[in-house]
Each structure stands twice: as C-alpha cells, then as structure tokens.
Design a protein around this nucleic acid. Structure first.
Ligand SMILES: [Mn+2]
Ligand SMILES: [Mn+2]
Ligand SMILES: [Zn+2]
Ligand SMILES: [Zn+2]
Lengths: 157, 157
DNA sequence: AAAATTAATGCAAAATATTTGCATTAACAG
DNA sequence: CTGTTAATGCAAATATTTTGCATTAATTTT
C-alpha cells in the first residue's frame, strides 16, 4: 500500500546536513539567502522540537540575533510552502516543527502537565489512517495526530 | 487492553436526546439552567459539525437569539470541562465539535478544497495510538487525529 | 567593482482573537 | 416572595496575526 504522507526527504536532508549550503539551497528554490532565513533555520534545528512563532522569536532574542516577529511569521509561512517546516495544530495551540519522520507522518505526544511536545513517527498509525480515509471516499494528503496525556518525566515525579 | 479515551456516553446521550431535560441535566452537574446555555446546545446540535466560537455566535445572531461572544467563550469552556464538547485543533484552526464516538476518540477528515470537516470514530486507530503512547512511557488521556485531503464530493466534481 | 534592480525586512498600525474586571441580571434555594 | 450568588453583558485589556509602506540588502547587470 502506498504511503500518502508527503515525503519531503530532500529538503529534510538539506535542513539537517551538518554544513548546509544555504545559498545553494535558497537559490534552488528561487529565494534569496538572507541572514534572517539562516537564523530561523538555526533556531529550528537547535531547538529541535515543535515551537511557536513566538518561541522562535524569543530564542533568537536570547542569542542576540533578534529579527522582527513579523519577519518570523513571513519566513515560516514561506518555509511551509517549501515544505521545510510543517504547521501542526495541537491542543496547546499551533506549533511549528521541523519535518521529522522519513515517511512524513506528523505525530505528537503533548504533556498536559509540563507542556512539552514530542514528535513521533509511526507507520502503523499511518496505515490505519489511510484505511479510514479510503473507507470515507476521502483522498488523504497528510495526517496529523496528537496524543495528549502525561509524559514519563512528569509521571515519575 | 483498556481504552483510555474518555467515555462521556451519558452526557452525549443527553445532548442528543430529542426532548432534552435541560434543568435536570444542568442540575446534575451543579450548574444553573440558563437561556444562553440552552441556546448554545441548540446551536451545536443544529449546526451538527465542528464550529468555532465565532460561528456559534453568528449562528445565534441569525436566529435573533444572540448572546454575547464572551458568554459563548465562557459557556463552551465550561461545556468542555464537563465533556459536553471537545475543542479540537485542526489545520484550519480550532473548532468545537459535539462529542461523537461511543469510545470518545476524536477524529476529523478535513477537506482542503471545500473546507468541510467531518468527524469520524475508529477503534483501530485508538488502539494503535495507545500502543504508541505506551512505548514512549506516556500516559494518554485523549487522542486527536486529523486527516487532511479531498472529500468525496470535491473529488467527484 | 559600482550601479541598478527588486526581494526581503523592519516598523507602525490595523485587524482578529481571546481574556479579564466589574456592574447588572436572573436562576433558584429557602 | 425574598435573598443569595452564579451567570451574563459590556467595556477594556491582552494576545495574536496580518497589512501597508518606507528602507535595507541580496543579487544581477553593467
Ligand atoms: Mn501518516
Ligand atoms: Mn482514541
Ligand atoms: Zn510532562
Ligand atoms: Zn471537499
């Protein structure tokens, strides 16, 4: 059975490559290689978990590399159309996460207690979701999934 | 294996009963039986699909039974704690939906083209989600799932 | 290397969405 | 009925997201 989740493998690899040729990358997608864009990529990769626009903005401020919040919005919007990031709504609000999962499925474990959001990828889940869609005569393009509960850390404490 | 999804069967039945004893219901949960609360229940059941706070408010305005938008917020918040409604984040934003599914799982099929959001319930999906959570040492409280794509109607046209 | 071009950014402000404080209203217990 | 107080409405505060436009800076052209 085919996996309908969008596979953005190439962009994902580029984003996570240790030394990343930003000029080459941006040129390849017809955009300019600007400092704010490089900074947002740095922020997303360094933070390494789903984040909101505000969080990206504040992370950059702390690093004394602040850019305008409006610019963060505009860059992330652009990155989303490129498939560089994925805007995932969770019960805590919208978050932005770097693409994970080889197979492009977006899954989240949200802790009610401490608020952390952890990404997961699961092919079984993806398969079941495809089956559900098919049964409803629905052509799926992407899957979003969130499991809300208590994380192992909070549970231990 | 136990099903961790919250079963709000009783409240769900009450909400959908043809003639609904609002006084009895609200008393049973320690709340007053007010006109705004009855109106919001009417709106949710009549609209019959996930809606935003604003949509509820505007539906009531059209029916000449407007209540304050702030009151809509407060009522829906209260209803959520009662388990009468469920605030589901979807890629189109937050929506409010009456609980469906016997087993309390919240699933959505969102059409990219026409914007309609259809609820679904699927025990298999629920089972897979529980397994994922368990593997991560996570204690699940609820599951949210959204499948984005093209609905059968849009597909046909 | 300098000038020209124009995409991208920053800033101010508008538009939206959500929350809070408080006076008034109305549900309901006695 | 009357008193008590939960619930509502209104105004305003906050928070979030979008828009318009002047300025900056990345890239192209000379
Ligand atoms: Mn998937
Ligand atoms: Mn479930
Ligand atoms: Zn936690
Ligand atoms: Zn459709």
């Amino acid at each position: 059975m085919q996996n309908i989740c969008i596979n953005r493998g190439t962009l994902y690899d580029i984003l996570y490559m240790h030394s990343f040729d930003s000029t080459g990358f941006f040129r390849s997608v017809g955009l300019r290689d600007t400092l704010p864009r490089r900074l947002v990529i740095t922020a997303l990769t360094e933070i390494g978990r789903p984040v909101s626009h505000k969080e990206v903005h504040e992370w950059l401020k702390k690093k004394r590399t602040a850019i305008n919040l409006v610019t963060v919005y505009r860059i992330l919007e652009k990155f989303e159309t490129l498939g560089l990031v994925h805007k995932q709504p969770t019960s805590g609000g919208f978050v932005l996460c770097a693409l994970s999962a080889e197979h492009g499925h977006h899954g989240f474990l949200s802790c009610q207690q401490c608020g952390t959001v952890e990404e997961f990828a699961d092919p079984d889940l993806c398969r079941v979701e495809n089956a559900i869609a098919r049964k409803a005569g629905f052509i799926p393009a992407s899957h979003l999934s969130e499991i809300v509960g208590i994380c192992s850390t909070c549970h231990a404490a």
